[in-house]
Computed example of a mutant assay.
Amino acid sequence: MIYIYDDSFDGFLTVIFDIYDLKIQPADICRERNHQPSLFAEKRTIITDGHKAGRVLSGIKKKLSLHGVHGIYKCWLSEQVGIEMMLFRYISYAIKSKRNIENDFSDSDVLEVSQVVKKINREIHRMHAFVRFQKTRDGVYAATIAPDFDVVTLLAPHFKERYKSQQWFIYDTKRQYGIYYDLSEVVEVKLENAQWQGRNKVSRLVLAEEEKEFELWWKSYFKATSIEERANIKLHLKHVPRRYWRYLPEKV
């Protein structure tokens, strides 16, 4: 049986509930947008149910630490091929075990979950360091990103704490949604007909005049403080991989 669900974590948890309820083991679990139709495979489309999802989450919380529960969500956000089946096996193992399984790295799924969480945490850390806000004409500080993993919602606590007195907006141009802070709370937003300039950066047409000047000053400062003879490209790329250069004004 192939279980198909919408693109939501609650939808995935609903699938877990229905697998146990129907007692039909999955051949695969996939998001609707990733499903490849087959003439021979039996499939079942699962309708997201908040109550069912909540029951599964409550059961998981009884078996794992808070860190472990967050790890499941982070793994799901990785969007890696086969991640749903791996998480199903991980959750099944946790539910049937009489002890906490989070450090049982002899199990291949436990080990894989740990490794994926490390990748997600590394991506979050890099987004904290490399996101560059630009002031728009309406006073909102905006930034665009296109991370390897779907981590934009996981950035909210850091930036809300760091820029609590400013309105800001971070948009994932790869997944076409973002988060907006209005000085009181962070909400998810999706833009219709969004238009960006090169490298999917915020259009210069909406930037405040002082922002354009600041960008020029920053480039001049970076150039003036760089010592060409002491450049260590290998070390530089280790700490600032090329795929993150798109966020940095000095690299544009």
Rank of each mutant, 00 (worst) to 15 (best):
Y3M: 06
E211Y: 01
A224N: 14
Y90T: 01
K62H: 09
W217K: 10
S78K: 07
M86Y: 00
F133L: 08
F159L: 03
H158M: 07
D150M: 10
R132Q: 13
H128P: 00
Y3V: 05
K23V: 05
Y73C: 02
Q197Y: 01
R243T: 07
Y93R: 15
P249V: 12
T153C: 15
D107G: 00
F214I: 06
K234R: 09
H35E: 06
K234F: 06
L66G: 11
S106E: 06
V252D: 10
A41D: 03
D49M: 01
T144Y: 07
R44F: 07
M85Y: 07
K63P: 14
R126I: 08
K238D: 06
G82P: 02
L207G: 04
F40S: 03
A156R: 06
F149G: 03
K63W: 08
F159S: 07
S92R: 15
R162T: 14
R137T: 05
E211L: 03
P241L: 14
L237W: 03
S106L: 14
F12S: 08
R230Y: 12
N193E: 15
V202W: 11
G54F: 09
Y181C: 13
D6N: 12
D7T: 11
I179N: 07
E209G: 04
R246L: 03
F133T: 05
L216M: 11
E213I: 14
T14F: 06
V81K: 13
K135P: 00
L235A: 15
F159W: 02
E209V: 11
Y180V: 09
V110N: 06
I95M: 14
S203M: 10
E84G: 00
A129L: 09
W168V: 07
N200T: 00
R230M: 14
W245L: 04
F133P: 00
V117E: 05
H125Y: 12
I145R: 08
G59S: 05
L235Y: 04
H35Y: 15
Q115A: 08
I91R: 05
E32I: 05
Q167C: 14
L207M: 11
E213H: 10
V252P: 00
R199S: 12
A146P: 00
C30S: 13
R33H: 09
D7M: 06
F40K: 05
E188K: 15
L77C: 15
W217L: 15
R89V: 02
Y244M: 08
T14N: 04
L205Q: 13
D10I: 03
K63F: 03
L235M: 14
K164L: 04
M86V: 05
L77Y: 05
S203Q: 07
F169C: 04
T45S: 10
T48D: 00
E211H: 01
K212A: 08
P157H: 03
K43C: 11
P249Y: 13
F214P: 00
K119M: 13
S92K: 15
I95E: 04
R230A: 10
K98D: 11
V140T: 06
F222I: 11
L13V: 09
E112L: 07
A143E: 04
R243M: 03
L57Y: 12
L235F: 13
R243A: 02
H125E: 09
E213Q: 13
N232P: 00
L216D: 10
K238R: 12
K201C: 02
M85C: 00
S108T: 09
L64M: 12
K251A: 13
A208C: 02
L248P: 00
R132T: 08
A143C: 01
D6A: 04
